[in-house]
Design a protein around this nucleic acid. Sequence first.
DNA 1: GAAGATTGAGCACTCAATCTTC
DNA 2: GAAGATTGAGTGCTCAATCTTC
Lengths: 143, 143
Amino acid sequence: MAQPSKITVEVWIQLARAHQAILSSIEKSLKDAGMPPLSWYDVLLELEREGNKGARAFVLQEKLLLPQYRLSRLIDRIEKAGYLERLACDDDGRGQRLVITQSGKAVRKDAWSIYSDAIEQTIGRKISVPSGKMLAEVLMSLS
Amino acid sequence: MAQPSKITVEVWIQLARAHQAILSSIEKSLKDAGMPPLSWYDVLLELEREGNKGARAFVLQEKLLLPQYRLSRLIDRIEKAGYLERLACDDDGRGQRLVITQSGKAVRKDAWSIYSDAIEQTIGRKISVPSGKMLAEVLMSLS
DNA sequence: GAAGATTGAGCACTCAATCTTC
DNA sequence: GAAGATTGAGTGCTCAATCTTC
């Protein structure tokens, strides 16, 4: 049980604070604009990338790091809002194909204009390009 | 409405992923060890730093970036578990002094041995000291 | 028995409304 | 009226149990 250095602890504290600050700012921007929360955006973006064939739920779980039960209820809500459809899966009777609808694509696009602006305000304006490259690279090694 | 660069977007994606991965790992470690969640730890640590005079709730709000209603119910649960006490505030009848109890200090200490080990496993082992210094510094400018 | 997915019950979060004291 | 704090009602998260298909 090796103890973490002061620097390691400081990294975690600052990582948690930065995440919390940025996330609440983004969520507030989306809500103020009448958009669905960020978790919906993540799902819709993945589905849009998958195209008409749709995506399996367990694939989304891995990509978005979500537990099964959370994704299941998240999909319920998004489907109820009309932004995705559950279709039967030909080659596996247990599963289903999740397909984004036209209105789903539209709301994702609208949300992106709000979302991207919030990212620029909370991150882009605050750090230099070299810092950003370094930051993204080091962070990638942590997940 | 300036658009964010690809690097800026990548920083946010990796920041969110790293945070999610590290946080769930830490929470799992705490739960497996029979410890309260991380939010309790944050409150208890701040109270321990304040000593016998205790801390005002609105001060915790600022330090922990928590909304009023969330902190209020968080304090309820921690108090019910016997880890803190709400005492009258002499100079302000609206507020109260939040004071950590002996068992609160004990559980915070026990939780730290689990928590610190999890930090070392998820962060310390994965990045170099120079990367860590740089990371902490840049992250600090984001919150 | 394992994998994909859902569900019931309990707990935590959220918002707006409220209360008390300043 | 503003600041510190709490609360009711609605929503979302969590865990374990469950169901179906592989």
